[in-house]
Design a binder for these strands. Structure first.
Lengths: 304, 304
DNA sequence: GCCAAAATCGTTCATTTCGACCACATCGTC
DNA sequence: GACGATGTGGTCGAAATGAACGATTTTGGC
């Protein structure tokens, strides 16, 4: 039960046509095995060998696990529980994040994406949890501030790159707008929200950090989104926040769905706010967003 | 992800014969990879680097992601002053930035890069100047805050994408570290510094925003960079800043080159700081960085 | 286990690129 | 001006590439 690639996967990874890959296989340049039905399958080790021998680099990520450069270790028996492998990946990502190793982080993220496919889980379990861990380490003096900030930069880079892996959202999709409010400089959560909403076929636009709610109101009035998300990690002045929030909710149209989330929204604060949904993580946001805007292109909007 | 060009595409973009392109590739002037069948393929980053190093201009649009859809005109006879076309591009970018039109901004930036080749000029004249303009408009009530913040997000996205157009920096290159100090949340300048330093073949690592100078010191001591940049847009407490700055300069090794820049460094403040160089923009930073670390790739000398 | 959808097969065909060669223009030197 | 060295643009048959097609296999849901 070893990993194998199809001609199409190889073609996309090298950005050449499928025809060429087939020809190369037939010529023996890429060692190939055949299924009983005659389809070509390229074992991953052979493919890596081919990459090395012809001095070729991947131009697109492989849809399965792969370490491009070194790291011949970690062969990971398939027998091993995938949950455990998942934990390993998560830990390794955290370590690379602390070390400031963007390349490894990128690779691990792509691997996670290829294996699990869900950006929301990636956002929660790879990025959010590890950044939270890094924050704890910093608070306890186990990590430097610059490591935490650099980790933010690395995650931001990866989020931007993941964005490019998502198929373009049609202009007919509903619009979602979001940001962090005044005084909240923590940009990652809002960037992640944009990412997972796009994955769920929303036309998501992140307005960034530190946006006064009065300006959010203006944005909503002008762009008329279907959904508005607010990521609140930190609040400077609670009562001022509640006031401006209530003012915003009075002004924007009724039909705008407001989703809020973030550590800043304590159990005590939330009852004072009116909103459509509260999300603790990106998995919740995704499932809510999909419930609102089913991603079926097909009709029959009834039931399930 | 990483696009590749054929000899014909390059030839048309430069309006030279295909034979010449092939010869240049074979001589190593344009780094080339080969398909399995022996066809030449030029990775986009290498091509852009070639453009820049030989001071060549694009005369026809590239058939890749840099397609020009939004501007049906612009056949740009060499007769028309390119300076004027440049201004048009600059203005159009600013407009799209205000409108939150990422796609158009991306296109314009790529076009600028392909035509003028210098990321530093792009950073100064497209991004910095337009963000400054947007800031002014906001101050004078001509633009909403959210438009300014969104503009930041768009620019950040574009910077991340431009990073992928730069050929990978060899691990033997000198290391550059940088960030913005405590209380300064303005991330773009530092991201631009990272970008243009990479373009000049530095191994640049941006540590992000809001990093206490004490932690910067720790980073320098641990990673031992050759260059340290500080982008200072805003200072909360001047005397505290000067104190921590001087403390940092006392602690880090002598041989570390310290480059500072940003609006926050007023004429009055600068004399109180010790530094290697002060830069008002990215063009200056680039020329300084290149003086320090020459970028000439060695000779031809191969052939036979 | 069965069925429909999706992916891959082998093949053919038009287009592009290769490598090699040649004609011509532009230099700098004698 | 003759000369060689060098760079450019063009042509040619051979080879590689990429896209198309109907037929077959694999996949995934029930």
């Amino acid at each position: 039960m070893e990993e194998q690639l199809t001609t199409r996967q190889v073609a996309e990874a090298l950005s050449v046509s499928e025809s060429s890959v087939k020809r190369w296989c037939d010529r023996g340049v890429i060692p190939t095995v055949r299924t009983v039905g005659g389809h070509r399958r390229i074992p991953l080790p052979q493919f890596l060998e081919f990459l090395q021998e012809t001095d070729r680099k991947l131009v697109a990520p492989l849809p399965t696990s792969l370490k491009t450069s070194s790291m011949p270790t970690a062969p990971l028996g398939a027998g091993k529980a995938s949950a455990e492998a998942q934990l390993d990946l998560q830990r390794e990502f955290g370590q690379s994040l602390r070390d400031g190793d963007l390349a490894t982080c990128r690779e691990l993220a792509l691997r996670w994406y290829a294996q699990h496919g869900g950006l929301a889980q990636l956002a929660d379990e790879l990025i959010a949890s590890n950044m939270e861990l890094l924050g704890h380490q910093w608070e306890q003096g186990e990590a430097q501030v610059y490591q935490e900030r650099r980790g933010c930069e690395i995650c931001s880079t990866i989020i931007h790159e993941l964005n490019r892996l998502i198929p373009e959202v049609p202009a007919s999709s509903p619009l979602a707008l979001g940001c962090t409010p005044s005084g909240d400089p923590y940009c990652l959560a809002s960037q992640l929200a944009e990412l997972v909403l796009r994955e769920s076929h929303w036309r998501a636009e992140n307005m960034g950090t530190n946006v006064p709610l009065s300006s959010v109101t203006a944005a909503v009035l002008e762009k008329r989104p279907r959904l508005l998300w607010l990521s609140v990690s930190h609040i400077e002045n609670q009562s001022a926040f509640v006031d401006s929030y209530q003012e915003m909710m009075r002004t924007i149209p009724e039909h705008v769905v407001v989703v809020i989330g973030g550590r800043g929204l304590t159990d005590e604060l939330r009852p004072r706010l009116k909103y459509t949904a509260h999300c603790d993580n990106m998995v919740q946001l995704t499932s809510f967003a999909r419930a609102l805007h089913g991603r079926r292109p097909e009709i029959t909007a009834s039931d399930n």
